[in-house]
Design a binder for these strands. Sequence first.
DNA 1: CTTGACCTTCCACTGTACTGGAAGGTCCAT
DNA 2: ATGGACCTTCCAGTACAGTGGAAGGTCAAG
Lengths: 129, 129
Amino acid sequence: MRIGQLAEATGTTTKTLRFYEESGLLPPAERLASGYRDYTEDAVGRIGFIHRGQAAGLTLAQIRQILEIREHGQTPCSHVQGLLGQRLGELDAQISELLALRETISQLHEKASKPEPDSCSADQVCRYI
Amino acid sequence: MRIGQLAEATGTTTKTLRFYEESGLLPPAERLASGYRDYTEDAVGRIGFIHRGQAAGLTLAQIRQILEIREHGQTPCSHVQGLLGQRLGELDAQISELLALRETISQLHEKASKPEPDSCSADQVCRYI
DNA sequence: CTTGACCTTCCACTGTACTGGAAGGTCCAT
DNA sequence: ATGGACCTTCCAGTACAGTGGAAGGTCAAG
């Protein structure tokens, strides 16, 4: 399977696949006599794993860690559990930050909806912010 | 007021202030005979505005837009209202994405908390992802 | 008169996940 | 033999908001 076919099969681009290889997320592919990369079916699963990891909010660096543990013959279960727990904590923090920000902006937005341009004094940039 | 004092007064760094000037967020400061930047009190307010804008989730580019409108002698009220409304929409989208992601990860995390390593087959990277 | 804190400019780099484009090689059909 | 689709490498750039460091100038205190 050539790189273009793999890209199509996995819904990505050849650029991205080469980037993944260079980043250590995909093992270097076998080469045909022409120099073209020649992928096996495994690659499809591997890229699926990368995509699922991304959908779970893991960074490529974290996904690479899991892959490396697996390559060293270990089962990365507890590591994955740790990563997911960590991610959960980050998400909770991020969500409450965004909710607070939403509250702030919502108030600013409401204030700005009843404009009183007269009260825009020259010494401030904007009455609302 | 020299740049270091302004940095301290506004809780930022000299690097950042020079970066703001270069980015058009701060008007080029007057210079002393020595070549040192010499700031007036205005600068403190201006940087406060930048910080409040950032706290409201605006990008430096958006803050610069507001500043430019103000510099052209117009009151940026309606523009600011637009920006805030837009930001509100983005925030809502971002929050619901994160909530969905949180749900996904939470389920994965729970699955991973009852490990059954026997079922980790060799042909997949990780049973949980 | 020297030390140290502070200032100047300029260039390059950080992290994240790609993306764009140039120059050239390969393969298959017409 | 030629056109087009596909592949190769390498270099550089995107957005964002700064950060790091080198080489050198300025100023007040001791």
